[in-house]
């Protein structure tokens, strides 16, 4: 476990979403999830602009296939 502060956050967050209607937390939660994929997609699009970047993406895909 990382630390007590983080565990307290997990407890507080779970209690918050149990007590509140979904309309209150779900939109922000979805934004948070989507943002992580958007950031990764933007980085890939930028990498595709250069030969070096495209090579890096190829290496990444090969690594992902072998995992």
């Amino acid at each position: 476990m990382r630390n007590n502060g983080h565990l307290e956050f997990i407890d507080r967050w779970a209690n918050f979403i149990k007590d509140k209607p979904q309309e209150e937390w779900r939109p922000k939660f979805n934004e948070f999830i989507d943002a992580q994929f958007e950031i990764a997609r933007r980085a890939r699009e930028n990498l595709e602009k250069s030969e070096e970047g495209r090579e890096a993406l190829k290496r990444e895909i090969e690594w992902r296939k072998r995992r």
């Binding site: 979403i17 209607p21 979904q22 309309e23 779900r26 979805n30 999830i33 989507d34």
Partner: peptide, 15 residues
């Protein structure tokens, strides 16, 4: 908790 959700409420992982 409120079980109601609209289709537009889904995030990338949900979809």
């Amino acid at each position: 908790m409120n079980a109601e959700r609209r289709v537009g409420d889904r995030n990338i992982l949900d979809r």
